[in-house]
Amino acid sequence: MTSQLKQDDSDTSKIIVITSGKGGVGKTTSAAAISAGLAQRGHKTVVIDFDVGLRNLDMIMGCERRVVFDFINVIQGDARLKQALIKDKRLENLSILPTSQTRDKDALTKEGVEKVLNELREEFDYIICDSPAGIERGAQLAMYFADEAVVVTNPEVSSVRDSDRVLGLLNSKTQRAERPGAEPIKAQVLLTRYDAQRIARGEMMTVDDVLEILAVPLLGIVPESTAVLRASNEGVPVTMDDPSAASAAYMDAVARLTGEQIEMRLDFDRRPGLFGRLFGRTA
């Protein structure tokens, strides 16, 4: 499979929000992995950190020492967008727009966010918005202009409940929801920290359980994996790190985001031989 073929999405860029409500479920990890995956597939991609005051995307992307200007500086006119965008050193199609570590969420304005997004639309195929946890201003602005949403969910009661709440907001408090005649946001669930063994023992809700409750399509299943912490330790998006069950799952999800039909895989348990198979398929 040649990955450098760019699909004909040059005329319409897509804004995708990575959101969840609950914190710690893997939003930033997923935003980093998905945007790196899109860039690897040849799409011009930018990932924006909306978590004002708690900047972390820069660390997960490994560009924390290169931040000079940020999203807030651009919104407030203190810097131009080009100055704030950090080009990834590993993938030429990938850029990062970090947020401010010192300001608070009130520095984000709807008009400011819209202006920056419109400017980014001219250059990028995919604009990935990494939402903060919660459902307040930062999270609402991260989702407001989105065309699609990836709702990151763990198979656990509080995460599923919060995802349900976020799905409600996506259908009511966004531009697509408010605009008469607009297509609703296409929301999909990305199930992370999936543990096949615990599910087999009846200790964890199954994929079907979660989907039955949330009633939205599934984008992917990311197994619990040591590769995720290792990648964040090193500042490498999971999809750019050594092949693992998690990176394979994220690459599948990325392919589905771009419209490919890929069968959902569930055989992620860590049997010997699995890594061999993964090395084989990601080459």
């Binding site: 409940r161 709440r165 009846g202 200790e203 809700m205």
Partner: peptide
Amino acid sequence: RKTRSAQTAKDRLQILLAHER
């Protein structure tokens, strides 16, 4: 065999979310 807590989780969520929605 311990009780299957996943089923409990699912049942609780379904009831709660029906009301919240």
